[in-house]
Design a protein around this nucleic acid. Structure first.
Lengths: 224, 224
DNA sequence: CGCGATTTGGGAAACCATTCACAAGCGCGT
DNA sequence: ACGCGCTTGTGAATGGTTTCCCAAATCGCG
C-alpha cells in the first residue's frame, strides 16, 4: 500500500511538506519539555493541545516522518523526539556564522535558544573595526575582510545576517560564494540567491504591521 | 459583477486573505524605497521582481485592496503606497509596549525599523529591579508591577513579549486583561489567549531548525 | 482618430494544506 | 482468549492560495 508517496519521492527526495516542517520545531520543543518531566508517552490530542494545533493535523504531520505511534496508546516521547530531531537534521552539529554584530546581532549571539537547540555560533563577523577583535558572548568578532576564510575554516553552511540593509546583498553574495547554503536574513531587503541556497527572512517591522492590520479590522468593524 | 465577495464581507469584514496581508508589508517597504527615488509608477512586473514574488500573485494581492492600477501603465507609487498603508492600519499611530528588557528586548527597543515604520515603543517593562528606572534608547524602563497602569495610560493595544519563557504566559494574561489585543511573541512558548486577541510568534531557533532541515535534504540527496 | 503595444483585473484551473471521519490496531481487564 | 475502549493513520472532502491565461482598459503615435 501507499504506492504513490514512495514513488513521488524519487531518489529519496521531498516528502515532508513545508507547512509540516515549520511545525516540527514546535513539536520538538514541547516534547523536550515533556521528556524533562518523566512523561514517557503522549497522545496526539495532548501534544496538539500543548502546541496549539488540531490533533488531526498533528497526526498527519507526524505520519510524514513514518509510523512511530502506537494505536490505543500514543507516541513514545523519546522515540518521537529523536525522529523529529533526525528529520530536522539536528543530529549533526551545525556551525553558524553571524554577520553584523550590532544591537540585534549581539542579542542573537547571546540567545540561549540557539545553543540549547544545537546551533553553535561559530563566528561573529563585522565591518566596524571598532568591534573587530572584541569578544561578544565568548566569541571573537572577526573582520569582514576575512569572511571567506572564516566560513571555510569553521565549515559554516548556515549564516545569520543582521547587517544594515544597504550591505546585506553584498554580504549575502560573499557568503554564498564562500559556500554558505542557508541564510537567516534579518535585514529588511529581499535577497537574491542561486537556487541551491535557502533564505528565510525575519521581518520584525512586517510582523507589527500584520498585527496592525488586524487591530484595524477589529476597530473598523465597529466604526462601519 | 463580483456578487459574492461583497456579500461574504458582511458588515465590512474580512476581504484580504492572510497570505496577502503578510506580503503587503514587503510591497510597502519596496514602494517606499521607490518613492524616494523619483519613480512615479511601477508595473506589477517590476514590483514583483523587486519583492521576489510572481507578478500574477502581486496583481491579485493588490486587487484585494481595490482597483488602483491603470491598465497599460502600472500603479502610481504614491497612491499605492497610501492604499497599502491604509489597509495595514498604519495611518493611525500605534503605541507599543515591550515587556522583557533583556538582550533581545534591548535590541528590539532600539530597532530603527519599528520607529521608521510608524510604531513607537511607548513603554519598556521589566521585572528586574536593577533595570527598572534605567533608560534604554531614550525610554524609561517601568516596573512590571505597574504593567496595568502603563498599558492604560499609554493607550497600548500592541505588545512585544521578550520575557523568559517561564513567565511569558503570566505576562500575556496580564497584558490581555489590561486591554492589549495584539501580541508579538518572542518567547518560545505557545501562548493561549482569548479569541479577540491576535498573537504572532517569532521563533528564532525554529527558523534555524527549518534551515537545518533543508541543509539535511541537500546532503541527504547526495548520500543515497 | 484609430491601431498597436502594454498592462491590469479577475475567472478558472491547479496546487497545497487543513479538517473530517472512520477503519485498523493495540493493550488491558476479565 | 476475547471483547472493549482508546488512539493512530489515512482516504476523502473541504478550504485556501497560487498560477495560468486572456478580455478589457489605457496610452502614445502615426
Amino acid at each position: 500500500m501507499t504506492v504513490q508517496r514512495e514513488a513521488a519521492a524519487g531518489n529519496g527526495a521531498r516528502v515532508v511538506p513545508d507547512a509540516t516542517v515549520a511545525r516540527l520545531a514546535t513539536y520538538l520543543r514541547v516534547l523536550t519539555g515533556l521528556g524533562e518531566d518523566a512523561t514517557t508517552t503522549v497522545s496526539s490530542e495532548e501534544l496538539a493541545a500543548a502546541t496549539g494545533v488540531n490533533s488531526a493535523k498533528l497526526r498527519k504531520d507526524l505520519s510524514f516522518l513514518g509510523s512511530y505511534g502506537i494505536r490505543g496508546v500514543g507516541y513514545d516521547v523519546a522515540t518521537l523526539t529523536e525522529q523529529i530531531a533526525r528529520t530536522l537534521g539536528l543530529t549533526v552539529h551545525r556551525n553558524v556564522a553571524l554577520v553584523g554584530v550590532g544591537n540585534l546581532g549581539q542579542a542573537l549571539a547571546g540567545y540561549a535558544g540557539f545553543a540549547s537547540r544545537g546551533f553553535r555560533i561559530a563566528a561573529l563577523i563585522d565591518a566596524d573595526l571598532g568591534r573587530v577583535g572584541t569578544t561578544v558572548h565568548g566569541v571573537a568578532v572577526r573582520n569582514i575582510a576575512d569572511l571567506e576564510h572564516v566560513v571555510a575554516d569553521e565549515k559554516i553552511t548556515i549564516a545569520v545576517l543582521t547587517t544594515p540593509a544597504a550591505v546585506a546583498q553584498d554580504v549575502c553574495d560573499r557568503l554564498v560564494a564562500a559556500g554558505v547554503t542557508s541564510i537567516l536574513n534579518f535585514a529588511p531587503v529581499v535577497l537574491s540567491v542561486p537556487d541551491h541556497v535557502d533564505v528565510r527572512k525575519v521581518d520584525l517591522a512586517a510582523e507589527l504591521q500584520i498585527l496592525s492590520f488586524h487591530e484595524n479590522r477589529k476597530n473598523g468593524a465597529l466604526v462601519v
